[in-house]
Computed example of a mutant assay.
Amino acid sequence: MQISVIIPVYNAAEFLEKAVDSALQFNEVQEIVLIEDKSTDNSLEVCQKLIVKDSRIKLYQHADKGNHGAGASRNLGLEKANCEFISFLDADDYYLSNRFEAEKEIFKEAKIEGVFGAIGIEYLTEKGKEEFQSKFKNISLTTVNFPAEGETVLKGLLGLTPTVFGTFFHLNALTIRKSALVKNNLCFNENLRVHQDSDFITKLAYHCYLKSGIIDKAIAIRGVHDNNRITKIIRYSPQYNQRQFLLWKSLYDWSSTNPLPLDCKRKIYLTYTSFDLSLKTGLNKYFCIFLEAIKNPQIVKTQYRFTYLNR
């Protein structure tokens, strides 16, 4: 395997070298693509020192040297990456020594276009730990609950499998054939400043044949600290609902132009509608009704819904 590791860099000077070193340990990693996104700390200087350290490390910035977000930075990384396989790594996280063990075997099967695994957690600050655990309880592993491949992955991510599939697998634990991304014209939605990873993974699970790798133990570690954006938003707050609405609108617009299974279209539509209604009315009562409708679609019988599903 020849792998390009894409690392978007924004205000991660404190963590970046550890992330890069964790990728350099693998002979399969032929290049590490750093995309510096106009950090306000000294991340750019750290990047410039790292590219001298190893010829596999390459540094890029956006054409205007501006800040464009993680989605745009990953897209630039995809444009610059030269290897057959693509992996991602957040600048404040790191790979473990078993990161590509499953991939080396699974990708021998030609139909497999992507492999995903589990990531663990390292608490870097006490405040970060408190915020993370208040939102996600005491979750030690971000993973799925059972091995899956093909359409089961898509349905699992949308909560449509008989057994709960689990959380979204993290980009840190995903490896994908670049040819599959090119063939399906897949990239990150740059209009989403958050949740662009969830959007990308859902679309990827439909267009590409994914298979689970190591899901019972971590292959990478997420660093949890004071500045993790994922822990800052209170669930069902106006800001949370706005960000969820943008995610599900992106998925709804996409699903409207692709022949997804009917139950997948229904789930995406109902979730999108619930957040849309919540924002328009500001009434959690109606939002909760639609959340219940997502679990039990038969209770929702609006003409608009059936018009959409039958077209």
Rank of each mutant, 00 (worst) to 15 (best):
G69H: 02
L78K: 08
K127S: 13
K129E: 15
E113S: 05
Q133V: 03
K129S: 10
V144R: 02
V144I: 08
F169H: 02
S134R: 11
V153H: 07
C83R: 06
H170V: 02
L154H: 11
Y94G: 11
F107I: 05
L181P: 15
S134E: 07
E79W: 06
F85I: 03
N98F: 01
L78H: 11
G117N: 04
Y123P: 02
E105C: 04
E151K: 10
L76F: 06
E130W: 00
E79R: 10
L76H: 09
H68T: 00
T161Y: 10
H68N: 07
G69M: 04
P162W: 09
E130K: 14
S97G: 15
L160Y: 10
G128A: 10
S97V: 13
A91M: 07
A72E: 11
P162D: 05
L76Q: 09
N184P: 14
A110P: 13
A102Q: 11
R99Y: 06
L171Y: 14
A148E: 15
N172H: 01
E130N: 15
K80I: 01
K80H: 11
E84K: 12
V115S: 12
G150A: 09
R177T: 00
A91F: 10
I106M: 08
I86F: 08
F132A: 11
A148W: 08
N185M: 03
L158F: 06
L78Q: 09
L141I: 00
G71I: 00
T161A: 01
E122K: 12
I139T: 15
K137I: 00
E84L: 04
K108W: 06
E149F: 09
A173L: 07
T167I: 00
K137Q: 13
G128W: 04
D93C: 08
K108S: 08
L76T: 12
I119T: 14
I106L: 14
D93S: 14
K155D: 04
P147K: 07
V115W: 02
E79L: 09
F146C: 05
L158D: 03
E149P: 14
G77Q: 03
K111S: 06
N75M: 00
I121F: 14
D90Y: 05
K108P: 08
K129F: 02
K183Y: 13
K129Y: 04
S134P: 03
D92A: 12
F165E: 05
E84V: 02
N172E: 00
E109K: 03
C83T: 05
E103H: 13
V115D: 04
D90P: 10
F132V: 09
F107P: 05
H68E: 00
G156R: 12
E109T: 01
T163F: 11
T175N: 11
P147G: 12
E131F: 05
N185Y: 12
E101C: 11
E126A: 15
L158V: 05
R99Q: 13
E105V: 03
G166V: 06
K155C: 08
E151S: 15
H170P: 04
N138M: 01
K183S: 13
F107S: 09
S87R: 11
E151Y: 11
T142V: 10
K111W: 07
A180L: 07
G71Q: 04
D93M: 01
